[in-house]
Design a protein around this nucleic acid. Structure first.
Lengths: 245, 245
DNA sequence: AATTTAATGTGTAAATCTAACACATTAAAT
DNA sequence: ATTTAATGTGTTAGATTTACACATTAAATT
């Protein structure tokens, strides 16, 4: 690595790479951008990185990188997550590919957007880079590039998906109370739900294992703890309508 | 165009382009592939082109092309449809991006898959190239490249979408009977539906305009003709759950 | 002209799912 | 012992979905 390169931020390095990819060759560069969702303090959060491009000074942006020529597309998204968060084994879903000509200031870059769901508590996420920060999704506005549109698209997709499949568990610790589960749904969908109907619904789906344990250190009557039963879910998936995405 | 080029098939030309794009530069090429659905003789059809690559001799494949550096991604999909079918103003939806390293024999090509819905009757589709053919979706197997997977993905997406939004009208002539509409749904979803409930459902949605016309030249009691009311649909979309894809 | 055919057009009841709603119970904190 | 702030539970009304049968129409056939 040259002296000049060590002084550059990650984004600036990426820009240089894009420029050599694109501007000299009149070809299209390909990147992955990832909307990383977490759930903390009863709020849905998204992990953003501060943009240090002059053009977007002070704005936040999604985590992304160029796709390597010898790397599967999905692997690329995993790599970004691993490099930036140190996490392994996380839920990841491709959402949409954004390819407006002028979407990136450095040249023609088409980007494939993913969202991922990570468990903030359990994994003890190491934020290696202090330019990374968890943002409340309600306060996400005015991101760099077209990242606001990408974020909006991914967030809507998550809202839709969570009504169709039990993805929420990826955002919770292994053991959780029904209140935590309901808070999660209420945060993601930005609605209030009836507690009794919510519980009935989940119990009727029969996807929760009762751990016969109680919450600890709560300043009120503790609730029971449950665990998501992946085996039962896998069995059900096969018998579902046959249309599974 | 050189002599040698005029003798080459479209696919072979594309392959050459891909090779110069990819193999010499170690970069990634980008294409669009399009699953074009039509509805004819009460069957859901898909438009395929015969592959003339040696490796896939005799197999069918989707219509696709490389994305041009100065072309928006969505425009690229429209261009392919226009060039190959002569059609304009067709329903088009991006579905998924496929990026396995070894998915294309000519090198590293990542492809963005779209599906489109066209009205076979109304547009009097000109099939310029006699290597193009409409296939019954039930008989689509063993396509070239990874096109079987792309097709399956797009078909499942269509099945899901049509349960959420009234897209089917794009496949029908402007005027249609309720029987035709039901046949369409039954073909796409590969199910039988109850006629009375189907009619009730559609009337309750209030998206059909009664034209006070009857079918002509049918060998039985003619049914009433209807038209899809786009205005009412647009109005409704805005008041729907707010989660619209 | 009468009959047959093959479809259209319509209504109701049962079953399921969803939505609305209130009170007793528990453990911690005071 | 009392207060607090949550957990845990059942029922009913309404809405939606499913199941199901018969009269009607226009063309085709005899």
């Amino acid at each position: 690595m040259t002296d000049i390169e060590t002084k550059l931020s990650n984004s600036e390095k990426t820009i240089l790479t894009i420029q050599s990819e694109v501007q000299n060759t009149n070809r299209i560069a390909l990147s992955v951008d990832c909307v990383i969702f977490g759930f903390d303090e009863n709020k849905l959060k998204v992990l953003l990185i501060r943009s240090d491009l002059k053009k977007y000074k002070g704005k936040w942006s999604l985590l992304g990188d160029l796709i390597q020529p010898a790397e599967d597309l999905d692997k690329s998204a995993y790599r970004i997550l691993q490099q930036r968060t140190g996490l392994d084994d996380i839920y990841l879903e491709q959402v949409h590919t954004f390819g407006e000509i002028k979407r990136h200031p450095a040249g023609r870059v088409i980007t494939v957007a993913y969202y991922s769901l990570i468990n903030v508590q359990h994994h003890k996420l190491k934020i290696y880079d202090n330019e990374l920060h968890w943002h409340d999704v309600k306060n996400v506005t005015d991101l760099a590039f077209d990242h606001q549109e990408i974020f909006d698209t991914c967030y809507k997709r998550l809202q839709k998906r969570i009504l169709e499949h039990p993805l929420g568990f990826n955002l919770l610790p292994k053991k959780f109370s029904l209140r935590e589960l309901q808070n999660l749904y209420e945060s993601i969908l930005d609605v209030k739900m009836d507690r009794r109907n919510f519980r009935k619904k989940f119990f009727s789906m029969d996807l929760l294992t009762d751990l016969n344990e109680m919450e600890q250190d709560v300043p009120h009557r503790p609730g029971k703890l449950y665990q998501f039963n992946f085996k039962k879910y896998e069995k059900k998936k096969k018998t579902w309508i046959g249309i599974d995405f």
